[in-house]
């Protein structure tokens, strides 16, 4: 878990530049000019280029705040692209740009990074790869995050991406699962919703680590998963795939917060045990407990960050690799998605 990055360090804008109807060469010159004029940016250490594509101002703002909420622990060049309209070939091709040098103090060190915001209209929106390629840092991974929209696997923008970030919760929950499966066939996909569920998964998995409780992991016979559509399906898919459970031992229900309850029997006629992970209303902690009938019990708690987006983004950016467990959970989740009844 990326708990270390949840507290956003205060940041300072060291310098900025704005241009209308610009070319990417102008943006690169502006970045160089800003760096040269600012002594505090004498050294730069970057680990990736982060490209965020948002289709409206609200998504863009949310994404930009999340990047700054990382607290400067992500020395990355961040390119935020806002596509303001449908991007038809008939409309005038315009690209306005804003560049900011931002710094934050992290553990006594000054870290700085570049934020480029491109607002595009017209046909450029169909050729974002041509905008992004000149702006990515050489030799470093490129992460593309389509905020609020599910990218098509064939989107040319993704050609330059080493990893594609999606947030299944934002792009349609269970409706987006088939598209994510499709996208995963061609790209490494990291789902922010999955990252947000990590505390629940960690706590539940941890409950089975003690020798008193481990034997029950092979004897789970009932699973209740509550939560919103999407997260509850992912968790159910995860449990079904990891524990090789059939769908009929699951009970899924709608709820504001995620909770899990597993009932299991031990081998050789041992008593039953219950394992639960839950977040209660009004709390920002996840509670877990395990209890063997007439036997030992255990409790655990895990605090949640105030804002889950920067935290899940930080977590996702730390693990930019193919996640087999997620893919299997996603496959399992699809089996819990009841197809809509046909129109009469």
């Amino acid at each position: 878990m990326a708990d270390a990055v949840t507290a956003g360090a205060p940041f300072t804008v060291l310098g900025s530049w704005r241009g209308e109807s610009v070319k990417m060469g102008d943006v690169l010159d502006a970045m160089e000019g800003l760096r040269r004029g600012e002594q505090r940016t004498a050294t730069r250490t970057s680990v990736l280029s982060l490209v965020i594509v948002a289709s409206d101002a609200a998504d863009a703002r949310r994404a930009a705040e999340a990047v700054r909420g990382l607290g400067g622990r992500h020395p990355a060049r961040c390119v935020l692209v806002v596509t303001e309209d449908s991007g038809s070939e008939a409309e005038p091709r315009l690209c306005d740009a804003e560049v900011e040098l931002v710094s934050a103090q992290v553990d006594g060190r000054i870290v700085w990074w570049e934020e480029v915001t491109l607002t595009v209209t017209g046909a450029i929106a169909q050729h974002l790869d041509s905008l992004i390629e000149p702006l990515t840092l050489p030799d470093l991974p490129v992460v593309v995050w389509c905020a609020g929209v599910m990218p098509a696997p064939s989107d040319p923008l993704l050609r330059s991406a080493d990893t594609v970030l999606v947030d299944s919760k934002q792009v349609g929950d269970v409706d987006a699962f088939p598209a994510i499966v499709e996208l995963s066939r061609r790209h490494t996909v990291v789902d922010l919703s999955w990252a947000r569920l990590e505390p629940w998964r960690e706590l539940l998995a941890g409950l089975f680590e003690g020798r008193h409780f481990r034997p029950f992991v092979a004897g789970v016979h009932h699973v209740s998963v509550a939560g919103k559509e999407g997260p509850r399906h992912l968790l159910a898919g995860w449990l079904a795939s990891r524990l090789k459970l059939s769908r009929n031992v699951f009970h899924l229900e709608d709820a504001r917060h995620v909770s899990l309850l597993l009932r299991a029997s031990g081998p050789g006629g041992e008593p039953n045990a219950e394992f639960a992970v839950e977040r209660r209303e009004g709390e920002r902690i996840v509670r877990a407990w395990a209890s063997v009938e007439g036997g030992p019990s255990h409790r655990d708690v895990l605090p949640l960050p105030d804002d889950s987006l920067p935290w899940s983004l930080a977590d996702a950016l730390t693990h930019l690799v193919y996640d087999r467990t997620y893919q299997q959970a996603l496959g399992g989740a699809l089996t819990f998605v009841v197809p809509p009844a046909p129109d009469k």
């Binding site: 089975f208 680590e209 730390t318 087999r324």
Partner: peptide
């Protein structure tokens, strides 16, 4: 414990 697989711990 198959639930530990894929976790970063």
């Amino acid at each position: 414990n198959p639930l530990m697989e894929g976790l970063e711990t």
